[in-house]
């Protein structure tokens, strides 16, 4: 073992962490950073090889509707998911009954089921002749001859909520649990109503985990391919992830596919900057603390 160590030291004075990190960093540079940079560059290269905006022009001409649709889906679904998740997490935090304890376990189911399986579930559950329509017809709420058409915005929203509300609850509820009971008791004892306890104490004190949940939910909706692909496919309007797949599979048109990719980068620009800043601070902060401890 001593031999290994001396060898490490002798090799041109590379510090040990350099060798430890080399494979991982090398892999990420080659398999992540290089394709990332090349996706941005390719989007500005015209089919004839010169630098131009022709791919973006084509993207706007062909896919403006889908870009607007994607923006609508991502923003509205993120808001709905977060509102539902905060309400559910508040309920879990504030009540301690047999029902709430049971719910605090079973709500997680959606998190563990892969997106591709969720997509298949929604395809059968929300189909015109699927279980939801049949059940609604049995209850007399709809006419079975005119079933609800859900392979569109509505179904996509249901699918995203089914999968991502539990994920957001997990993060937000974790934050709520860090808030000491004494704050809540103090507020309740001075007669604060539940609404005020939530808006003045729980949500403000838990701002960071709510923001992280927002950012991650939003980024996931922008980048999810399976659910819109299997639910809506090539119908108009669809999401830009589906358009990218079509562009590549049917036309081998990497220019427009990458221009659409760059549009999806722009979608997440604000949330990405926030997430990166926040996470870097967190990780580096922890490291400083540990150095002090040592």
């Amino acid at each position: 073992m001593a031999v290994t160590q001396t060898r490490l030291r002798h090799k041109g004075g590379i510090p040990p962490y350099g060798l430890l990190l080399l494979p991982a960093v090398g892999f990420m540079l080659l398999v992540y950073a290089y394709p990332f940079v090349s996706s941005v560059i390719t989007s500005f290269v015209s089919p004839s090889g010169g630098l131009s905006l022709v791919n973006f022009q084509k993207t706007i001409d062909l896919y403006l509707k889908d870009i607007v649709f994607t923006l609508l889906v991502t923003t509205s679904n993120t808001v709905m998911i977060l509102v539902a998740a905060i309400m559910f997490a508040v309920y879990l935090r504030m009540s301690d009954t047999a029902v709430s304890r049971l719910l605090s376990h079973i709500y997680k189911l959606g998190i563990f089921i892969p997106f591709v399986v969720v997509a298949q579930m929604m395809r059968s559950f929300l189909a015109p002749h699927g279980m939801l329509n049949v059940a609604l017809a049995q209850l007399g709420l709809i006419n079975i001859d005119r079933p609800l058409q859900l392979f569109n915005y509505a179904g996509l929203t249901f699918g995203f909520m089914w999968k991502l509300v539990p994920f957001a609850v997990l993060i937000v509820h974790g934050g709520f649990q860090m808030i000491d009971n004494s704050y809540l008791e103090a507020a309740r004892s001075t007669g604060a109503r539940l609404f005020h306890v939530v808006t003045r104490i729980l949500v403000p004190m838990n701002k960071s985990s709510i923001l992280v949940a927002t950012v991650l939910v939003y980024a996931q909706i922008v980048s999810t391919f399976t659910l819109p692909y299997m639910l809506i496919g090539g119908k108009i309007p669809t999401t830009i992830t589906v358009d990218i797949a079509h562009r590549v599979n049917y036309f081998r048109d990497f220019g427009v596919a990458n221009a659409l990719g760059v549009v999806s980068y722009v979608f997440v620009l604000v949330t990405a900057v926030y997430y990166l800043k926040n996470s870097m601070k967190q990780h580096q902060g922890k490291k400083v603390k540990e150095v002090v401890h040592a």
Binding site: A219, V248, G261, S264
Partner: peptide, 9 residues
């Protein structure tokens, strides 16, 4: 933080 689909493309 960023969509991965363009990476795979």
């Amino acid at each position: 933080a960023f969509p991965q689909m363009p990476i795979f493309v």
